[in-house]
Write a protein that binds this DNA or RNA. Structure first.
Length: 434
DNA sequence: ATCGGCTCGCGCAA
DNA sequence: TGCGCGAAGCCGAT
């Protein structure tokens, strides 16, 4: 494999024990560069390979629904790995502590993990890099062009990252080797997963491939034209799978060659989100906005807001705006809001809260709690785009927004049948029960 | 239906 | 140093 995907996190020597893959962001057996790297090392060292996953007590406000989706996917991964003679262990608690203890217990000779730019899971990596007595590295198995190879800095917009990605696609957009039956070590007893609630979205690697196949066969041809109409079902629906690492964006790209509009979103815009979160530590805070955006939002702090809602009123879809309530209802009921409505939804939270800080907090809280694809660099970047003009430009100045791009429901009506959307996602008069 | 202006700053050409 | 143009728009003029 291309070793530019790999980054050393400490400078310790390898030991003699098994290679451990601390699986975190990439929950799949196929098309996973972090696992492929761990396999290569274990073969070279002639040792067993152990995959470990640690379920944190709490992860950025994810709900039970999201956790069940994740766990069901992991159950499939555990089974598939065992069939390849690769041991799988499920832990729970603080990953930094539990994975360290696990590595000590099995006398790990080397540890590999997958890459993420988010603060909390990065802190686990920092802690392991400090405390592990053997070599530790991470592999960018999320981005097609590894985030540190695509660019050495925070990019200004999609247009500045795009040429850098395209220049390197020939090098990185390659076929994956298959994981073969591992010749060293043996697997332990089967992992017990508790009962998980079924949802409209089927979890796991196989389900993800089916969703991809359905998209390519039935929707991709009309994607460019219909992707911004929330009444149409022409999106790929892959974002939950991509978020949980149940499918590789690189696999999706290999299958979707020629679908340029889709590939632009799948590759450039998605990898721009990891670029933002990796190089901007305040990716979910006001401080992470550009200087011009902070200046203009500061100048409009005192503006009168026509409507002010509490987090609870937003959560229960109790605003005056039927379009906003419908989007919120779609998110709560389906766990997935249509991409086009997400911009409108976040911008209205800016408009109807006391400060941009509060708007960010409310938008991130709701997005992380209800979306299958929440708690993801895409979500933080999308919200920063909506509320803080990140990767966007300044526009005509107006109240509250300043020069941040404004949106209203006239725009929605221009583009699709808003009444039909509102009819479809109609919140009950009493609000929701949680 | 379509067009230009709004407004900032990066990145590249010169 | 100048200049083109950008992640999804709005608005008013034509």
């Amino acid at each position: 494999m291309n070793l530019k995907r790999v980054r050393r996190l400490n400078d310790r020597e390898a030991g003699n024990g098994p290679v451990v893959y601390f699986m975190d962001r990439e929950r799949r057996m196929r098309d996973n560069w972090a696992l492929i790297r761990a396999v290569d090392l274990a073969l070279e060292m002639k040792v067993a390979l152990k995959v470990v996953y640690c379920v944190p007590k709490e992860f950025l406000g994810a709900g039970k629904r999201q956790n069940d989706f994740m766990l069901a996917g992991l159950a499939e991964v555990a089974k598939d790995l065992r069939a390849k003679n690769i041991d799988f262990t499920l832990l729970d608690g603080d990953p930094a502590k539990e994975v360290l203890a696990f590595c000590k217990r099995v006398k790990a000779g080397f540890v590999v993990t997958d890459f993420t730019p988010l603060r909390l899971p990065r802190s686990w990596r920092d802690s392991l890099a400090r405390d592990l007595v053997v070599g530790f590295e991470e592999v960018d198995s999320r981005n097609i062009v590894p985030v540190w190879e695509a660019s050495p800095k925070k990019e200004f917009g999609a247009y500045t990252l795009r040429p850098k990605i395209h220049r390197k696609l020939a090098e990185f957009l390659t076929e994956f080797p298959e994981v073969k039956r591992h010749p060293f070590g043996s697997v332990g007893k089967e992992v017990e997963f508790g009962a998980m609630q079924k949802d409209w979205l089927i979890p796991g690697e196989r389900a993800a491939m089916k969703v991809l196949k359905d998209f390519l066969e039935n929707k991709a041809g009309d994607y460019a034209e219909k992707r911004n109409d929330p009444n149409e079902d022409f999106l790929s629906n892959l974002s939950p799978y991509l978020h949980y690492g149940m499918i590789s964006a690189q696999r999706v790209a290999l299958c979707a060659m020629g679908q340029e509009v889709f590939l632009e979103e799948l590759i450039v815009r998605r990898e721009l989100a990891d670029n933002f979160c990796f190089y901007e530590k305040n990716y979910d805070r006001f401080e992470g906005f550009h200087a011009w955006a902070k200046k203009t939002l500061n100048e409009h702090r005192g503006d009168v807001r026509d409507f002010l809602y509490s987090r609870e009123e937003f959560e229960q879809a109790k605003t005056h705006d039927a379009a906003w309530n419908a989007a919120q209802t779609e998110m709560v009921e389906r766990g997935k809001m249509h991409g086009y409505m997400r911009m409108y939804w976040a911008k209205k939270i800016l408009e109807w809260t006391k400060s941009p800080e509060e708007a960010l907090e409310v938008a991130i809280y709701l997005n992380d709690k209800y979306e299958f694809d929440g708690r993801d660099s895409n979500g933080y970047t999308g919200i920063a785009w909506s509320i803080g003009g990140v990767h966007d430009r300044a526009w005509g100045e107006r109240a509250v927004f300043g020069k941040i791009r404004y949106m209203n429901d006239k725009g929605l009506k221009r583009k699709f049948d808003l009444a039909a959307y509102i009819e479809k996602f109609n919140p009950s008069q009493d609000g929701f029960k949680f």
